[in-house]
Measured scan of single mutants.
Amino acid sequence: KEFRPGDKVVLPPYGVGVVAGIAQRSVSGVSRAYYQVDFPGSRSKAYVPVEAPHSVGLRKAL
Rank of each mutant, 00 (worst) to 15 (best):
A20W: 04
R25N: 10
A33F: 13
P53W: 13
V16W: 10
S31I: 14
P49G: 03
F39V: 02
G6Q: 02
Y34S: 00
K8G: 03
S44P: 09
P40G: 08
Q36W: 06
G21K: 11
Q24A: 08
A23D: 05
P49W: 06
E2D: 11
V10S: 06
V27C: 12
S28Q: 14
V16M: 12
P13D: 05
K60M: 10
L62K: 10
V37P: 02
V16Q: 11
K1F: 15
S42L: 12
P12V: 05
V9I: 05
S28D: 15
A33Q: 13
H54K: 06
L11T: 01
F3C: 15
K60V: 08
E51T: 07
P53I: 09
A52F: 10
E2V: 11
V56L: 06
V16Y: 14
S55P: 05
S42F: 10
K1P: 14
K8C: 14
V50R: 01
G41H: 13
L62A: 14
L11K: 00
V27W: 06
P12Q: 06
G57L: 03
F3Y: 06
A46G: 04
K45L: 08
V56R: 10
Q36C: 11
K8R: 12
G17W: 00
A46L: 08
P40Q: 07
A61L: 15
A52T: 08
K45D: 03
P53R: 05
P12W: 12
R32F: 06
F39Q: 00
V48R: 00
S26K: 12
V9W: 01
G57I: 05
P53T: 12
S26W: 14
H54R: 06
V9K: 00
L11N: 00
S26H: 08
G17Q: 00
H54M: 08
K1N: 14
A23T: 14
Y47W: 11
P53S: 14
A46V: 13
K1Y: 15
P49Q: 05
G41P: 14
F3I: 05
R43M: 15
D38C: 15
F3A: 02
P49F: 04
V18N: 03
V56Q: 08
F39W: 02
V10H: 08
P13N: 08
G41E: 12
G57R: 06
V30K: 09
P49A: 06
G41R: 10
V9M: 03
V37I: 15
K8T: 09
D38I: 13
Y34K: 01
P5Y: 07
V50L: 07
P13M: 08
S28F: 07
G29D: 04
V30T: 09
A33M: 13
Y47I: 03
S26C: 14
A23L: 15
A61K: 06
L11M: 08
P49D: 10
R25V: 13
R4I: 13
A52S: 11
V37E: 02
G29W: 00
G29Y: 00
A33W: 14
